[in-house]
């Protein structure tokens, strides 16, 4: 195996183009586990952390562009991100331990394409867009469209994610992410739910995006859940409809982390709880 740490996107793209079996290294918290367990044996590792901009969080069009190598800890320490997208920040902060936070990235969490990735439902709810670079140039792709199934992404050979854009936050909007794990830390999500919504002056929902993780082969954007609360105040009836829509939309499997019945039920529970938090944030309350 070889290791390269190019200093420009162009170099990185060229290096990747010359090595079909290469893997991109950003935070490495998934890649090194796979290397160690001999699940992968790449000829080349391309470390993108030394490329300019990869470790930066920059304002853009009212939102934030987050470089592919920005760690969870750096996201958690960023005042602007915390103010605008607390749900995404919390989701990123749930990936692994403090130690993992020192390295893990949003882009890596997305490219790992695990259905249970914590940051992905939050990013999908937020309407995040990935900027992809590759031999054919640069393209933008909505985060929801990046994962294609467990371990599979829409990235073509030689492409990698350079950054992720969280859009401008609309007025009276808030987001939240909750996940269920058996312990209080260190587990993979059994169910995850990201909610982003906007309210009118009367507290009625004017826009909503609800995304579920770990209950299907990839993250699920539940339109029916958003529709269930559109135009309504987040009262008990609306929240129950939201929960029911999420439970219905979930298509989970039984595995070592949870059962179908459990995941379906908890998808609704988390959606309701996350919506309450997002709603409070939209109203400018601390939550």
């Amino acid at each position: 195996m070889r290791y390269e740490a190019p200093s420009s996107v162009e170099d990185a793209v060229a290096t990747l183009a010359g090595a079909p079996g290469a893997h991109v290294l950003a935070g490495g918290t998934d890649l090194l586990v796979r290397l160690r367990s001999e699940m992968i044996e790449p000829d080349l590792i391309v470390d993108i952390k030394r490329i300019k901009g990869m470790r930066e969080i920059a304002p853009e069009a009212g939102g934030w562009r987050i470089g592919a190598a920005v760690s969870g800890a750096e996201i958690g320490e960023h005042e602007g991100l915390r103010a605008d997208w607390p749900g995404v920040v919390e989701a990123a902060g749930l990936i692994g331990s403090t130690q993992v936070q020192g390295r893990a990235t949003l882009a890596g969490n997305l490219c790992n394409a695990s259905p249970a990735a914590d940051s992905v439902p939050a990013m999908v709810a937020a309407g995040a867009v990935a900027r992809i670079v590759g031999p054919e140039g640069t393209r933008d792709l909505a985060v929801i469209d990046v994962p294609k199934g467990p371990g599979k992404t829409a990235l073509a050979r030689g492409e990698f994610i350079a950054s992720i854009l969280l859009p401008a936050k609309a007025p009276r909007s808030g987001d939240a992410y909750l996940r269920f794990i058996p312990r209080t830390e260190m587990d993979i999500a059994v169910v995850g739910c990201g909610v982003s919504l906007s309210l009118d002056e009367e507290g009625r929902v004017t826009a909503a995006r609800v995304a579920l993780g770990a209950v299907g082969p990839k993250v699920i954007l539940v339109d029916a859940a958003a529709e269930a609360i559109m135009g309504r105040a987040l009262d008990e009836a609306a929240l129950s409809d939201l929960a029911a829509a999420c439970s219905k939309a979930a298509t989970p499997i039984d595995d070592k982390r949870g059962t179908v019945a459990f995941r379906r039920h908890v998808a609704g529970v988390l959606a309701r709880r996350a919506a309450v938090i997002a709603g409070a944030r939209a109203k400018g309350e601390q939550a």
């Binding site: 058996p182 312990r183 209080t184 830390e185 260190m186 587990d187 993979i188 070592k256």
Partner: peptide, 16 residues
């Protein structure tokens, strides 16, 4: 064995 690691063999962590 499905859970031959500390990720899914879940011993208590400090926050538990």
């Amino acid at each position: 064995l499905q859970n031959a690691g500390f990720l899914d063999y879940r011993i208590p962590v400090a926050s538990d």
